[in-house]
């Protein structure tokens, strides 16, 4: 185990260093995500005003703010760039350099990719959560922060990240067959936002659609951890949903290995 981390930690270290080198990117990307949150905030404010109820399908405005900001932070944090990393490496042939090292392909990419959530955790998650909790505390007039929920959220969030990573890996392997993934990738991004409940809470959707989406792996990405944070999942429901996350994680790891074993034989290292 120790050896394992000694072997793969350098990938994370290198990943963190190269990400920080372009930290201006993170700042602007984070700002655009924040801007999006505020736009959505005003949209939902209008919705709540129009429906002139305090409560909209089990969410009050305060919940909505929490949901909105937490979902976007979570989606942002668990966002994996594995697909574009793979696609890029295949396109320019630098995948060869990774294959020439005595390391496992997936794990080396994972440990590099993980640099992103680690940095974002400190740069985005912590300040954002503090702000949201202050907002909650001020509007409710008391401290609303639930340490246990937060802890469970982090656990579920880690699984969410891994699900997201393996989902993106599988998707990235498309690059073995399609030379340019960019268009497909944009489509995937928008679709994911909808399917994972990042655009509209799954709870607001028609029952049938909601049940299907809740079962699919996409709800594991941000919906489940956020519901846990908000305290909407407790007891059996919580176990069930985390169990579902674990199930999808295992399924995706298996799928990823299967695709890899087939795809590697098709690999054409370009250039030279």
């Amino acid at each position: 185990m120790n050896k394992f981390f000694r072997l793969y930690m350098p990938f994370t270290r290198a990943g963190i260093q190269s990400t920080l080198m372009y930290s201006i990117n993170i700042i602007f990307f984070s700002l655009s995500e924040l801007l999006y949150c505020f736009v959505m905030y005003y949209v939902w404010l209008a919705v709540f005003d129009a429906s002139d109820g305090q409560n909209f399908m089990g969410f009050d405005m305060q919940d909505m703010v929490l949901y909105l900001f937490m979902t976007n932070v979570t989606a942002y944090l668990t966002m994996s760039q594995a697909d574009s990393a793979i696609a890029e490496e295949i396109k320019d042939g630098s995948i060869a350099m990774r294959l020439l090292k005595p390391v496992d392909y997936h794990i080396s990419i994972l440990f590099k990719d993980i640099a992103n959530p680690i940095i974002l955790f400190f740069m985005v998650f912590l300040p954002m959560t503090v702000c949201v909790e202050i907002y909650r505390g001020v509007t409710a007039g008391m401290i609303m922060f639930q340490p246990l929920n937060c802890l469970l959220y982090l656990l579920s969030g880690i699984i969410a990240y891994l699900v997201s990573f393996y989902l993106n890996m599988c998707f990235g392997f498309l690059a073995f067959y399609v030379t340019n993934l960019w268009g497909v990738s944009m489509f995937k991004k928008i679709l994911l936002k909808f399917l994972s409940g990042a655009a509209i809470p799954l709870a607001f959707m028609p029952a049938a659609l909601k049940n299907i989406l809740a079962f699919l792996p996409f709800s594991s990405l941000s919906y489940t951890p956020v519901m846990i944070y908000m305290g909407k999942y407790t007891g059996a429901e919580l176990l069930l949903n985390v169990g579902l996350q674990v199930f999808w994680l295992i399924a995706l790891i298996v799928l990823c290995k299967l695709i890899w074993n087939r795809a590697i034989r098709r690999l054409c290292v370009q250039g030279g």
């Binding site: 290198a14 190269s18 080198m21 042939g93 350099m97 020439l100 005595p102 250039g271 030279g272």
Partner: peptide, 18 residues
């Protein structure tokens, strides 16, 4: 690959940013 060393003149195996 533990037993071999490889250099492709046209590309690098070094970490670009490090």
């Amino acid at each position: 690959v533990k037993e071999i060393g490889v250099v492709f003149g046209q590309r690098t195996q070094l970490w670009w940013d490090l």
